[in-house]
Amino acid sequence: MSAVPTDYSLRSSRRRLGDRIGDVALRGTTLIAALAAVALLGAIVWKVLALAWPSITHYGLSFVTGETWDPVKKVFGALPFIYGTAMSSLIALVIATPLAIAIALWLSELAPGGVRGVVGSLVEMLAAIPSVVLGLWGILVLGPFLANHLEPWLHDKLGFIPLFGEPSPTGTGLFTAGLILTIMVVPIIASICRELFLQVPDELEEGALALGATRWEMVRGVILPSTRTGIAAAIILGLGRALGEAIAVTQVIGGGTMISSNLFAPIDTLASKIAASYQGAGSGLETASLLYLAAILLVIGLLTNLAAQVIVRVFDPLKGAH
């Protein structure tokens, strides 16, 4: 296959030579740029796998289920960090999803005209706060608050559930990381859902109201069912963000390698373990194992992203990405 569109240049054979060269050159350069983006994604996948290869060949798939990470004994396994990633993302999504949908509904249905635009912009600004700033706030403001107030209270009232065990002394731990991720995920889900809700045809909404439905019944009976797939894609995009966040999580999660049922205990996620340990990594196998973590993160990240994009494209061809 040649990049030069021959039929195109034949049709325009009477044009001046310069224009013909210009056409081909512009088409060619833009095509190369587009192909470079595709090649870049391929190169990223290949390079990360290549860097992790020593550990991949050493451990195979058993790395994924290995429970110990011990640089002294040179035994490495990814399970604690997969657990940390799953739990912190789960905490974030469980809190963020209803909150974000409520915000989106408020913005699209309830907000008085004057404040709608302002609040919408403010919610988007929440997404623009750099993660390292949010992490700094998390470690020095939110963490101490949680350690002194919320965590002891939860432990007192709900301590019979193993999730709410001993509060952490400094406020760093899985729970704090989940809350910081919540703050990052809410604006993502909320702004996509707002767009979705605004696309629901007015006739459907007004029809429901005219039939005597209350606003909430209209939301539950018309808006939510007709935007279900879009909401699912929005949640998955939020999940992708939560899974991959490294810096803010590293700052507040405390760092640990023990799987504990206690939400307040320190642990690490895949991304935060890489960010926290990379510079101190001693042996070649430890470095390669950290990169194996990155490879796992890459695969999970690619899958969630693809899933969200496929849901959006297959079920709602009108809407591209967010």
């Binding site: 587009a34 983006a37 595709v38 870049l40 994604l41 190169a43 990223i44 390079k47 990360v48 860097l51 995009l237 992708g240 963000r241 899974l243 991959g244 966040e245 490294a246 991304a271 890489i274 960010a275 990169l291 990155a294 993160l297 890459l298 990240g301 690619l302 969630t304 992203n305 693809l306 969200a308 994009q309 494209r313 591209g320 990405a321």
Partner: peptide
């Protein structure tokens, strides 16, 4: 469409992976 998909996937890639690359 596939190029668009690649761009969207690149956009959602964890940035720490970009750093490692």
């Amino acid at each position: 469409r596939p190029i668009q998909l690649v761009l969207d996937v690149l956009n959602g890639l964890p940035t720490i992976i970009t750093g490692i690359f």
